[in-house]
Amino acid sequence: MNIFRISADLLHLASFFILIFKMKATKSCKGISFKTQLMYTLVFTCRYLDLFHVLGMMITFNFAHITGLTLYNTFMKILFLAASYYIVYLMRTELKSTSDDARDTFVLWHILAPCAVLALIFNAQFTILEILWTFSIYLEAVAVMPQLMLLIETGEADSLSSHYMFAVGGYRALYLVNWVYRYATEPYYSNWIAWIAGFVQTALFGDFFYYYFVKIMSGDAALKLPT
């Protein structure tokens, strides 16, 4: 565990809190893509199935393989799952009337199908768990596309929404630094699938980061895209 990895995870965790805070404080989920949030629940559900493995070890009192890192990962995985399901729940219950569904027009099959095919072809092991893990990595890389499309459609984002997007995009950028660090310091550490997907994921945020920093520098509350 290095400083980049822990910062990335905390930034990712912060992104959930920012979004939940925004929704609770403004009683609105305007400007937030339900489709992107739904994809994140799918991403975490597919990726964290190994929670059952850890749970299995715990209930059989098999603690030999449970390390501090396992406990940390397990705690964070449960938080990420709970937060993403809670966001989707809020957007479909009490905040449904404020949802930007009419402008959230991205066709999810355009990312779901290619990610599924790629996961079946390019994976480390042809097992169900490994394919679902790989699928989740590919899907996460592009899951922000409905949100970006909504942002372009709207032309601007309020302050909390833009902070949320900065956190959710920035966390993967920090993971890239973490992977470079691990590659340099740990023998045989490499995971090309995660690296390439992580690079694509960060690159998709490229324009957004630019406008976000312009906004921060100019001290504006809302992020505006050029018309």
């Binding site: 850890v54 893990w133 973490n178």
Partner: peptide
């Protein structure tokens, strides 16, 4: 080896 060790990141 657990899955957690294979994928030790989030």
């Amino acid at each position: 080896e657990s899955d957690d060790e294979l994928h030790d990141e989030l």
